[in-house]
């Protein structure tokens, strides 16, 4: 018997409650103070003051531009307001810039994100290199997604991006395309983590999805957050966002997308396959070997008091993808 059935996911009262997506008040959707702070900061930069007061933030901010996108009201989180932008942009796992959470915000500005092209290849009719500017002209929208890290912390982030299906349509995948692999840029001269004597992971960073997961309307290619283009530490200029999977599946700074016939192996799976599986769907019933996944700390809360939901609360939309699968085995 499988540990999971479609029936469980649909009937769970907690899931149903979480999927109602009530619309929060305007002040909840957009942390106004955050925008105002950012504007004040940009203003200060003009006056040349920020470089004295806040050198790091001002330099990082200089590359970030406002980015307008239609808000998609379907994708508002159940109840929690978005995480403070300061926290979402200063607490990042991006091992190419060091293994601490604070390193990427410090180190990632050395990455050149313009110009940027993505090589889209593999089992497709029209393999091509696509310029970022072309992708920016696709149908962009803002969606507020829950973000659940495998380390048992979570955030709520307003992403700006387009559905992966739009990109797939540009290259026309063939019937042989069963999986998609995403690859992060690897530039030792710009990424301090790649110059480390003991490499923390096997570079370049890759991870993949099953074709139906990639083509799911929830799967987003992200180019911005909080009404701006992506900061480098968050994976500029283009990253993946699959909200029902653990954070590490969301490959950052993507330079290559391959449509494949065989299941690819991600960097973390390669590093520790017993801890990080191919699916890595958020699941409170399947613990990480070294820690429990039952609850999570919604940052910046002190207590890890939030109960983690199956598929990170997106069960209604994605549970059918895994009907009949044993999720304890296919972790």
């Amino acid at each position: 018997m499988s540990d999971f059935s479609k029936h469980d996911a649909i009937q769970s009262p907690r899931l149903i409650k979480s999927l109602r997506y009530p619309v929060p008040a305007g002040s909840e959707i957009t942390p106004e103070a955050v925008y105002l702070n950012r504007r004040a900061l940009l203003g200060m930069m003009g006056a040349g003051l920020a470089s004295v007061a806040l050198p790091e933030e001002s330099k990082a901010a200089s590359k970030i531009e406002p980015l307008a996108a239609q808000k998609n009201a379907k994708f508002l989180p159940p109840s929690d307001p978005p995480t403070d932008i300061k926290l979402a942009t200063s607490y990042n796992n991006y091992y190419e810039f060091g293994t601490s959470k604070s390193a990427p915000a410090r180190e990632a500005e050395s990455l050149t994100v313009r110009p940027w092209t993505v090589e889209v290849t593999g089992e497709v009719m029209k393999p091509r290199r696509i310029d970022l500017e072309e992708l920016m002209r696709l149908q962009l929208e803002e969606r507020i997604y829950r973000f659940r890290c495998v380390e048992a912390w979570s955030m709520v982030v307003p992403w700006i991006g387009f559905e992966f299906r739009q990109l797939a349509a540009l290259v026309e995948p063939t019937s042989k395309a069963k999986y998609v692999r995403f690859t992060t840029v690897a530039r030792p001269e710009e990424m301090s983590g790649l110059r480390a004597k003991l490499p923390s992971l096997d570079w370049p960073y890759t991870d993949g999805l099953r074709m139906d997961e990639a083509m799911h309307p929830l799967t987003l290619m992200v180019v911005g957050m909080y009404g701006q283009t992506l900061p480098n530490q968050n994976g500029a200029p283009l990253r993946l966002m699959v909200p029902w999977k653990y954070g590490f599946k969301n490959v950052k700074s993507i330079v290559k997308i391959e449509f494949l016939e065989k299941q690819p192996e991600g960097s973390w799976t390669k590093a520790a396959s017993n801890e990080y599986g191919f699916y890595s769907n958020v699941n409170p019933q399947v613990d990480h070997p070294r820690w429990s996944q039952k609850r999570e700390r919604l940052l910046p809360a002190l207590f890890a008091s939030r109960e983690t939901e199956l598929f990170n609360g997106y069960g209604e939309q994605v549970a059918s993808l895994y009907a009949g699968m044993n999720l304890r085995f296919n972790y």
């Binding site: 995480t83 926290l87 607490y91 959470k101 912390w153 700390r297 940052l299 910046p300 207590f303």
Partner: peptide
């Protein structure tokens, strides 16, 4: 300062 220890103050402490 509630933001002084970053996004994950509990882990920090």
């Amino acid at each position: 300062d509630p933001l002084a220890l970053g996004a994950n103050p509990a882990e920090h402490i």
